[in-house]
Design a binder for these strands. Structure first.
Lengths: 221, 221
DNA sequence: CGAAGTGTTGAAGCAAATCAATTTTCGTGG
DNA sequence: CCACGAAAATTGATTTGCTTCAACACTTCG
């Protein structure tokens, strides 16, 4: 599976990979860097609805659903692998791979549910704190974070677009988190001195990330 | 497929079908009535993250993901069919059915994305208007709505839990929609005199519901 | 007929948006 | 290596949408 996605191309920051309405012929996989799903609102603002980290598949949808209902863009510079939809469909015939891909979809969906709860029900400061808890674990799973330090190159405006708040308020919320000593954010690096404290603070429960269930369910079959 | 889900049991309103942390042995299907997915917040409030309408599958997840990361409850009285997880796994081996179920998952996810945009980016009044637009189309697809009239038995408190707002504000927002003549809500029935007007008002774009793509993608295979 | 649940209204308070200006950082070319 | 311009971060003042609290009316149903 990895072999197929071995070759990748470099994509600059802030470039669209796929746009709403497209029916792309390839499925995209992020190998390095951060990307995002987004939708444009009628008001003209961009709403980011998912962060795509190394190892994440961008648009498995198109193999099944047809037209894209949202767009995908890089945030940082990325290494992106592409696999033709036809190849994916062949792979899907293999029960194990099909199941793994389905797991991937369901995992995305679980994150989306938690984001909905997060945006709909927490104050700005806790919302950001919660997001950072998730990011830490997801990056750890991808082998991209160690002892509470991780690469965080997004601008405050991008963070604001993700959390559904103004950039001014994102700024002030970050300051609060810093003052509370919950995070250290500097030089595009995010340190979380006490992850458990941040998790308690934000009401974070990692169960929705279903850590480890891939391998387990693979062994089951 | 329908044959397997032919038998169903009656479940009263406001009953849990599955709880967070469960590993249910059956997959549930709503045949009649309204149900919802929800999560409890640390504050103790319930957040509804999806509405489950007739024809919707509740928890295909468990067949792949294992443990439930959220709960499911009826809103109204429901007819619920249950299919053992094992049977679902067997069915999944059939490529067509597997694909149809996958489509179902992806369709859920698309709705979730739109809800995230909706909650994160629109005012209370437009948020509710948008939700009603979606409900109308989904019920139409399920053969449960005709010329702008549909059954809407939810309380304002339940609506508020869905939209991430206080029940007081849900009440006031509904009044605004009524005053504007965009909806008529009475006797548990929702009338939408001019659906297109409501769609324009709320910035609704139905593309994310992928109407008709099931059959098309089935024919493709 | 009374009690509980649901819907409605008013007033006060708060979180976040908005607007606008200023400072800091960063990338680029001289 | 420094100077410059643009992007990003920060701050203050004001406004707004929404929450909260509290009371009250209406409906539903045993």
């Amino acid at each position: 599976l990895d072999a197929i996605a071995a070759t990748s191309r470099r994509v600059g920051p802030r470039e669209d990979l796929i746009r709403e309405g497209d029916r792309p012929s390839d499925v995209h996989l992020i190998k390095e860097g951060y990307a995002c799903r987004y939708k444009m609102m009628e008001s003209g603002e961009r709403k980011i609805i998912a962060w795509l980290l190394p190892g994440d598949i961008c648009d498995l949808h198109v193999a099944v659903l047809g037209e894209m209902d949202h767009s995908i863009a890089t945030l940082t510079e990325c290494q992106v692998a592409q696999v033709p939809v036809g190849t994916v469909e062949e792979l899907t015939r293999n029960e194990r791979i099909g199941r793994a891909l389905w797991w991937n979809t369901l995992s995305d969906e679980a994150i989306l549910r938690e984001w909905l709860v997060n945006v709909g029900g927490r104050t700005a400061v806790k919302r950001i704190a919660h997001l950072f808890c998730e990011l830490r674990i997801r990056l750890k799973m991808a082998g991209r974070a160690w002892d509470g330090a991780l690469w965080f190159p997004l601008t405050q405006a991008e963070l604001a677009e993700t959390m559904g708040m103004s950039n001014v308020h994102a700024n002030r919320s970050l300051q609060t988190l810093r003052e509370e000593g919950l995070i250290v954010l500097d030089d595009k690096t995010l340190h979380i001195p006490d992850p458990e404290k941040l998790e308690r603070y934000s009401g974070f429960n990692p169960n929705y990330l279903h850590r480890g269930t891939v391998s387990r369910s693979r062994e089951d079959t």
